[in-house]
Simulated scan of single mutants.
Amino acid sequence: MSITLDLRQAVIHKIQGHSKTELREMIDGSVDGPETALPGLGAVFEIIWKDLDPAKKDNVVTMLHEHLKSSAPGPTTSGI
Rank of each mutant, 00 (worst) to 15 (best):
S19V: 07
P75K: 13
F45S: 15
S78F: 03
A72S: 11
V44E: 10
L52P: 04
M63N: 09
G29E: 10
P75N: 06
M26I: 09
S78M: 06
S71C: 10
I47E: 13
S30N: 05
G29S: 05
G42R: 13
H65F: 12
L5S: 01
V11K: 05
T4N: 00
S78P: 00
G42W: 06
K56N: 07
P73S: 11
G33T: 05
P39G: 09
G42C: 15
P73F: 06
L68T: 08
M1H: 03
P54E: 15
I12F: 13
G17Q: 11
A37Q: 12
T77Q: 09
S30K: 02
V60I: 15
S71V: 07
W49G: 05
I12M: 09
M26N: 05
S78I: 05
Q9D: 04
S30V: 02
V60P: 01
A72N: 09
L7G: 00
R24D: 04
S19M: 08
I3T: 00
I12V: 10
A55L: 14
L38K: 15
K69V: 10
I48S: 04
D32K: 10
Q16W: 00
K50D: 10
L68I: 14
F45T: 14
G29C: 07
D53Y: 13
V31K: 08
E25Y: 01
A37D: 08
L5K: 04
A55I: 11
G79H: 09
G33K: 07
L64D: 07
A72Y: 09
R24C: 05
H67A: 15
T36A: 13
S2D: 02
D28E: 15
M26V: 12
M63I: 13
H65W: 09
R8A: 01
L23F: 02
H67W: 11
E22F: 03
L23T: 01
S71W: 04
T4S: 00
D58R: 05
K50G: 03
Q9A: 04
A10R: 05
W49H: 12
I15D: 02
I80S: 11
H13T: 08
